[in-house]
């Protein structure tokens, strides 16, 4: 079981690092530029750029946006790998050996996804760094202004809120695609369809849960 969990951590969590760092960096950059371009009133302090980047990255872009990407990347991997095992009777083979196949296939994925908040933490850092890079090197803000904005009115609970969301999203990303893969019927074509359906449902549930959690925790 331990080797299985490590394998899933490598596959699901570590393997997603590259794309997440890439996306976070550029999204952070875009948020920073957009904010800068929308400040036309000279009375608004320039440190708003750092402030806005921090708030959007920590509250929404890192946890929610990244999770939608993960629903596509990790979710479709989970559905198609479990679904393929279903159609090629590998799951039946497990059952006949006396293995509890649902437990064997899904449990390690859930445990692995508990490491997901670490990914989100990295996404936060990289996103803010991307914002700083775009702001400073794009000539929209001075480094000092940006850093001042980052430290302005910092509410630690926002980070907690974000991590609570990530844990919940991690569970959604591990379970909904597993369910679609495990209980699918048919052949190779249906594996593809199941992956798509799983992605749609995972995203919808993430978006709704995001709304509910935000209302409950911040509202």
């Amino acid at each position: 079981m331990k080797t299985l969990i490590l394998k899933e951590i490598d596959e699901l969590v570590y393997g997603s690092m590259g794309i997440i760092i890439f996306i976070s960096f550029f999204i952070g950059g875009v948020v920073s530029i957009q904010t800068a371009l929308n400040i036309t009133n000279p009375l608004i302090p320039r440190n708003l750029i750092g402030f806005a980047t921090r708030q959007s990255v920590i509250l929404e872009f890192a946890p929610t946006f990244t999770s939608i990407i993960m629903a596509g990347k990790v979710g479709s991997y989970i559905t198609s790998s479990i679904g393929t095992m279903r159609v090629t009777e590998q799951i039946d083979a497990l059952e006949i050996m006396g293995v509890n196949s649902l437990n064997y296939l899904v449990f390690p994925k859930i445990i692995a996804m508990l490491f997901y908040p670490f990914v989100i933490a990295i996404a936060m850092y990289v996103g803010i760094f991307g914002g700083w890079t775009a702001g400073v090197f794009g000539g929209f803000s001075s480094s000092a202004d940006f850093v001042e904005g980052l430290q302005l009115d910092f509410i630690p609970f926002h980070v907690t809120y974000s991590f609570i969301k990530s844990i919940v999203f991690a569970l959604i990303i591990a379970t909904i695609p597993s369910f679609h893969g495990y209980y699918m019927k048919g052949g190779a074509l249906e594996v593809g369809k199941a992956s798509t359906t799983a992605f749609v449902w995972t995203s919808v549930v993430i978006i709704i849960v995001n709304y509910i959690l935000t209302q409950l925790l911040l509202g």
């Binding site: 095992m85 090629t88 590998q90 083979a93 059952e95």
Partner: peptide, 15 residues
């Protein structure tokens, strides 16, 4: 079930 062995129509090896 642990006392049973099965050879599936499509082999069903763990790929």
């Amino acid at each position: 079930r642990q006392e049973m062995g099965m050879v599936f129509q499509g082999s069903a090896l763990f790929d």
